[in-house]
Amino acid sequence: MTVTPWPDGRLIAFDTETTGTEWEMDRIVAASVVAVGAGREPEVTTWLVNPGVEIPEAATAVHGITTDRARADGQDPVTAIAAIADRLVSLMDGGSPLIVFNARFDLTLLDRECRRYDLPVLPDRLLSRELLPVIDPLVLDKQVQPYRRGSRRLPDLCAHWRVRHDKRHASDADALAAARLAWRIGRTYPRLGAMDLHELHALQVERAAQQATSLQSYLRRTDATAHVEGRWPYVPHTTNSASTDTAEGKQR
């Protein structure tokens, strides 16, 4: 039986805009789930969320969503977070991989939002009972071109890989850009594009940990307390979970 390479199949991409970069305390103010590829029309679902807290001016300066707008037009957070999780699960249970740029941040934050409102977390909702397969273009980019200099933020990777990125800091545009990046890397490196999705997921778990260890060692040359979280694609909740990692947080 011929197996379709994952870049040629349906890809599900997810992105959030938030109140900040600390997953234990910050909130989702916008999110998008985008299904693309496989010769079918894109499906884009977007939520504007009233996070129930003030949106800091620094966050508004990034994504343009004010507290007043979120309160006036945003959905109740319990309704929105439940709908986001339901949409992701319905698509992932269909066999499609989930594409998330810097997955560790967005998926950990979604996990914490579900817990905040006593909603089932993604692994408990999925038929597999595991949050996989996930594809993170940031992890793959560092894997295939580890010594390339320069920024690895989303707009810079889009420019490097020559993929379209319509509007920075809009969750639907960022999700689409992440899907395009994953597709481009999978096409450029056929060995990755031909991998079984579960094997690719396991490879990223290993590589993300190695990348974090390497970056942490570098940062500790000047800061002995520097910590870079290595768990991926999300950080399981514990009473001692770090709020964010030193170097990455929400990379945009």
Rank of each mutant, 00 (worst) to 15 (best):
N50K: 06
G52W: 00
D68T: 15
P77G: 12
A82N: 14
G95T: 10
D86F: 06
M92D: 04
D73P: 07
G64K: 04
A83P: 11
N50I: 01
N50D: 15
A85P: 07
I84D: 05
V49R: 00
G64V: 06
L88K: 11
E54H: 14
T46L: 00
V53S: 00
A85N: 14
A59R: 07
G94Q: 09
E54K: 14
T79D: 10
G52A: 06
G94N: 05
T45K: 06
D86I: 05
W47C: 10
G94M: 04
A59L: 05
H63D: 03
L91E: 15
I81M: 03
A80K: 08
T60Q: 10
T45L: 04
I65T: 10
L91D: 08
D86H: 09
A83D: 14
G95Y: 08
H63S: 04
E43F: 07
E54G: 09
V44L: 07
I84A: 08
I84V: 15
A70H: 10
A82T: 12
D68A: 15
T46C: 02
E43S: 14
A83L: 06
H63Y: 01
I65P: 12
E54I: 14
G95F: 09
T45N: 00
V53R: 05
I81H: 02
A83N: 13
A59D: 07
S90R: 15
A85L: 13
G52D: 03
V89L: 13
